[in-house]
Lab assay of single mutants.
Amino acid sequence: TFELKGKVGKVVKIAEDHYLVESEGDKWIAYSDEKLSLGDRVMVVDVDGLKLKVKRIP
């Protein structure tokens, strides 16, 4: 299986209740415990079905 946990991506869209993150050339629906901005670099900390939980990284 394709393992996304630990992968790095970038926030490419902000929606009302989720983010769109591009990682490894694909776009994924993501959510975070912190507020993210367009262009933020993020790391995948968990995968919930087809949704990614991400956190901001420097």
Rank of each mutant, 00 (worst) to 15 (best):
D48W: 09
P58M: 04
D17M: 10
E34M: 06
I57Q: 07
S23Y: 02
K51D: 10
L4C: 15
K10E: 12
D40P: 00
L36S: 01
L52R: 01
D17W: 07
T1D: 15
Y31L: 13
G39Y: 11
E22M: 06
L36Y: 06
F2D: 15
Y19F: 06
K35W: 09
D40S: 07
K27M: 11
K7E: 08
G6R: 00
L36F: 05
L52H: 02
G39I: 04
A30S: 14
G6A: 01
G49C: 10
S32I: 05
V12L: 08
F2W: 02
V42H: 00
V47C: 07
V45T: 10
L4T: 15
K51Q: 10
E16A: 11
S32N: 05
V11W: 01
L38C: 12
E22P: 00
I57V: 10
D26Y: 12
S23N: 04
V54C: 05
T1W: 15
R41Q: 12
K35F: 09
K35H: 12
L50D: 09
S37V: 11
V42Y: 01
I57H: 11
G25R: 03
E16W: 09
D46R: 02
V54E: 00
D48E: 08
V21R: 01
V12Q: 05
L52V: 08
V47E: 04
K35G: 07
K51N: 12
K51L: 13
S32H: 03
G49L: 11
K55A: 13
F2P: 15
K51M: 12
K5T: 14
G39H: 09
L4P: 15
E16S: 13
M43K: 03
D46T: 03
Y19W: 08
I14E: 09
F2T: 15
R41V: 13
D33K: 09
G9P: 01
L52T: 02
V11G: 00
K5F: 15
V45F: 04
H18N: 07
K27Q: 06
E22A: 05
V54Q: 00
G9A: 14
D26C: 13
D17P: 13
F2M: 15
V11P: 00
K5M: 15
I57A: 11
S23M: 15
R41I: 11
Y19V: 11
I14D: 10
K13Y: 10
G39Q: 12
V44L: 02
V12Y: 05
R56C: 12
V44D: 01
L38P: 08
E3F: 02
S23G: 06
V42N: 00
W28I: 05
Y31Q: 14
Y19S: 09
E16T: 09
E16F: 10
E24G: 03
E34Y: 05
I14K: 10
L36E: 00
Y31E: 14
A15M: 10
R41A: 14
I14L: 10
W28V: 03
E22K: 05
M43N: 04
K10P: 03
P58L: 05
L50N: 09
I57C: 14
D40G: 05
D17K: 10
I29E: 13
D46L: 03
K55G: 05
I29G: 11
K35C: 14
E34Q: 05
L20T: 10
V45R: 02
K13W: 07
S37H: 09
I57R: 03
V45W: 05
V21P: 01
V8Y: 03
W28H: 13
W28C: 03
K10T: 09
V42Q: 00
V42G: 00
R56I: 10
